[in-house]
Amino acid sequence: MQESIISGNVKTAYDQFYQKHDEAWRMMSAEYKAQHIIEVCRGLTFTNVLEVGAGDGSILKFLSDQNFAPEYQAVEISASGVEYIKSRDIKNLKAVQVFDGYKLPFDDDSFDLIILSHVLEHVEHERMLLREIKRVAKQCVIEVPRDYRAGVDRRIKHFLAYGHINVYTPTSLRYLLRTEGFEIENDLVSMTEPKVTRFNTYVNQKKPKSFVSNLRITAEFAVKQGLGKIFGKKVSEQFANAYTVLCKKASQQPELF
């Protein structure tokens, strides 16, 4: 696999992205992503952890501060992202390097855990990357945004602005993983916390603050959370903004033909 397998415009977009990234926004989002990783892995220990598509290292920073594992490594397609990760002085970060987006420069079963958080929605050839992850790691945590809704095809411009070329539901992600020979050990559905919604609304989108807006954000979260508790996982998945899974290699690999 050669580096050219990533479209040139994709590579250029992400090389430039971390030169102008918003530290406060990314750290706020990463805090909850790291919490989701810790939650689905509760009770487990890992010696070495690799984050694939590590961005600017925000998630690794939170995990390191929580002493999630004694050793971390990271790979990222963006050179600016790699340089930013190096500058953060993340405790127990052994190495960080640029990779081609698909081929992981490690031997089979090199890591106890691979983290792939909010990456698959950006990947042109998602199954190729998943096969590499299965080769290199004994277990993996994957989180995706739940972007799929009815009429999503009418919002293509919106999602492409964030680089989301794939959209998922919990069901479609489970199908993808199981057909690629993964066994799901634990999962978590989550909604965007009001704190994050307020930041996105008032800071990122620059909408005016108001008591009514604050009340709406808080009430919507509470109502959806309550309905999920009453009606169970199916309803929780419909309201979810993100879906997190802990996987391992299935004992029986699927027969595709």
Rank of each mutant, 00 (worst) to 15 (best):
Q2K: 06
E3Q: 14
E3P: 01
I6P: 00
N9I: 07
V10R: 10
V10N: 09
K11A: 06
A13G: 13
A13Y: 11
A13N: 15
Y14I: 05
Y14D: 07
K20W: 01
D22G: 10
A24C: 13
S29P: 02
S29Y: 12
S29M: 07
S29G: 05
E31Q: 11
E31H: 11
A34S: 00
A34Y: 02
Q35E: 13
V40N: 00
G43K: 06
L44P: 07
L44W: 12
F46M: 13
N48C: 02
V52H: 05
G53M: 01
G57V: 01
G57A: 05
S58T: 12
S58N: 13
I59G: 00
L63F: 07
S64R: 11
E71M: 13
Y72A: 04
I77W: 14
S78T: 09
A79H: 12
S80R: 13
G81C: 11
V82L: 06
Y84E: 15
K86D: 11
K86A: 13
R88A: 04
R88H: 09
I90T: 08
Q97K: 14
Q97V: 08
D100P: 03
G101S: 02
F111Q: 02
F111R: 08
F111L: 07
I115E: 04
I115W: 12
L116V: 07
L116F: 05
S117L: 00
H118K: 09
V119R: 10
V119P: 02
L120C: 13
E121W: 03
H125W: 07
R131D: 15
R131P: 08
E132M: 04
E132A: 03
K134V: 00
R135I: 05
R135W: 08
V136M: 09
A137R: 05
A137V: 07
A137D: 10
A137T: 09
K138V: 15
Q139G: 03
V144S: 07
V144K: 09
P145T: 11
Y148D: 11
R149P: 11
R149Y: 09
F159L: 14
L160Y: 10
A161T: 08
N166D: 08
T169D: 05
S172P: 12
L173K: 02
L173Q: 07
R174I: 01
Y175T: 12
Y175K: 06
L176S: 03
L176I: 06
L177N: 01
L177M: 03
G181V: 00
I184N: 07
E185Q: 09
E185P: 03
N186T: 06
D187I: 08
L188T: 00
V189H: 13
M191L: 06
T192R: 03
F199G: 12
N200T: 10
T201C: 09
N204K: 15
Q205T: 01
K207I: 14
S210Y: 13
S210C: 10
S210E: 11
R216K: 14
I217F: 00
E220F: 00
F221K: 00
A222I: 15
V223P: 03
Q225H: 15
G226A: 12
L227D: 06
K229N: 14
K229E: 11
I230T: 14
I230N: 05
K234Q: 15
S236E: 14
S236I: 07
Q238I: 13
A240H: 01
A240D: 00
A242F: 04
Y243Q: 07
Y243N: 05
V245W: 03
V245A: 09
V245S: 01
K249G: 10
A250D: 09
A250K: 03
S251C: 07
Q252P: 04
Q253Y: 10
E255A: 10
L256C: 01
L256T: 15
